[in-house]
Design a binder for these strands. Structure first.
Lengths: 139, 139
DNA sequence: GATAGTTAGTTAGGTGCTAACTAATTATAT
DNA sequence: ATATAATTAGTTAGCACCTAACTAACTATC
């Protein structure tokens, strides 16, 4: 039993490594190797709330409006977001993710997808079905 | 095939979540919920090099000695390391990990181990063997 | 004299704040 | 309908704190 655990450990260690490498590739592919965890978190928040204004983001993240202004300025500079003026209210700007911003915001899913792709390349359909059946039992 | 990938995605998403939660538990269990990625990295470096002095750590990490002094001061404060004076040379201090420091340094392995334990609880021996056989094919 | 580690002072960048402001909208009075 | 007061959206300026790192100078030890 101990040996099985060791083998499992080794095998999963490898999987986690692959995913981590995919993640790094995503960031450096976007020219953002040193983006911070906080910044990624904020991009995810913007992604999760489709229609987000400065005031709304300030409320969601519990930050002040000037903080959001500065953050968005940086993201614009990094080409992760852009401002879109509302047609209904001349004061309002929506914060929109660029293509790059979306990639970063979804880096977690994207790197996991890459891992799944890699697995699909190496495994046949039976293997995958078995894998799904087995792993479904883990809570 | 697409459906299999989706199922795999879902199942692995769950596994990654479990591991991530284990990781967070480890840090907050040590009273270090807000330890930085850099700090964890340095503790790992200290862990990997058994016998490490200030000069050596400065060399390994490509930092200046005062930087190491300050970093170690913080880690001492966080109760992650302690200084051990060399008996051979009064100038030399070894940087040693405390129990807590070791836990943090090995948080990656520890959280993965917790995940493996959790899996061992849910799976019988055949399942585990199958799992190992299947996942071994992934490169 | 050379080396191990420390202290003093500094810089850069991330993260966040308050106070004050402009521009735009809404509410109210006439 | 128009004018004015009040409110709201977002910005600018200045500041604070933190992490991470540096150089210069120093003390202790070999």
């Amino acid at each position: 039993m101990m040996e099985r655990k060791e083998h499992l450990f080794t095998v999963f260690e490898g999987l986690f490594k692959i995913k981590s490498d995919c993640s790094c590739d995503i960031f450096s592919g976007c020219g953002l190797s040193d983006i911070t965890v906080k910044q990624i978190g904020y991009l995810k928040t913007i992604d999760e709330h489709g229609e987000v204004t400065f005031s709304k983001l300030a409320k969601i993240t519990r930050n002040s409006k000037p903080t959001i202004t500065e953050m968005v300025r940086k993201f614009v500079q990094m080409e992760c977001v852009y401002r879109e003026r509302s047609s209904d209210d001349g004061r309002i700007f929506y914060i929109r993710l660029t293509e790059k911003g979306q990639i970063i915001a979804r880096s977690e899913q994207n790197s996991l997808l890459k891992l799944i792709e890699k697995m699909a390349e190496s495994l046949d359909e039976k293997d995958m079905d078995d894998l799904i059946q087995i792993l479904r039992k883990v809570r």
